[in-house]
């Protein structure tokens, strides 16, 4: 995309556009959900977002995306608010300058490839909460990580690793998510 652009308007516009499209559908579109949705756009749908993801406590995470969100919020593209006094989470919604910021990256955002990919990610993953997105993004990350390391894998290998990485999800929940990802032909591992 525009990783080397003087000002990465396309990245800023993408964050703003996702806030706009996911606000009505996502139960709580927060920082974790944004990370996972952009990860899916990047590694699953092949959109050159310019973001690189590493594995952290809550699954795939991009420091650059975290950083960009802060700036986009400062500019007024989105608003990031505390979810509640008790729960240490955040909600992202479009800000007062959302239109102006999307306009700066309109060519990218409205290109047929990106527009289709955003629609798919919203349709297929937009209903999941942050925790469900975290599990699916983790499955995809493990699948891609092992493939990149040249390690032949099947679904059982992925299940075993995800169980260790995400012990709070029971086996059935992981299996169900894994099956969903495999049915959607999102995984590179064998059956």
């Amino acid at each position: 995309m525009d990783s080397y652009a003087l000002v990465p308007w396309n990245r800023y516009a993408l964050i703003t556009e996702l806030a706009r499209r996911l606000e009505p559908t996502s139960s709580q579109f927060g920082k974790t959900a944004l990370q996972k949705i952009v990860y899916l756009l990047t590694d699953l749908f092949g959109i050159p977002t310019g973001y690189e993801f590493e594995f952290y406590n809550y699954g795939p995470f991009s420091s650059q995306l975290h950083h960009d969100l802060d700036l986009v919020a400062h500019i007024g593209g989105v608003v990031v608010e505390d979810y509640s006094a008790e729960f240490a989470g955040y909600v992202i919604s479009p800000g007062e300058r959302a239109d102006a910021l999307i306009e700066k990256g309109a060519e990218f955002i409205h290109s047929s490839e990106v527009d289709k990919a955003i629609s798919r990610v919203v349709d297929e993953f937009g209903d999941f909460n942050a925790s469900e997105l975290e599990l699916r993004a983790t499955i995809l990350f493990v699948d891609r990580d092992l493939a990149a390391r040249g390690k032949p894998t099947n679904k059982d290998d992925i299940l075993s690793i995800v169980q260790k990485l995400k012990p709070r999800f029971d086996k059935l929940t992981i299996e169900s998510a894994l099956e969903g990802m495999a049915t959607g032909e999102y995984l590179r591992c064998s059956n």
């Binding site: 920082k31 974790t32 990370q35 952290y56 406590n57 809550y58 995470f61 420091s63 975290h66 950083h67 802060d70 955040y90």
Partner: peptide, 10 residues
């Protein structure tokens, strides 16, 4: 560019 604290990752 840098963020001093990553609120959600670690």
């Amino acid at each position: 560019e840098n963020s001093w604290y990553k609120h959600d990752a670690s």
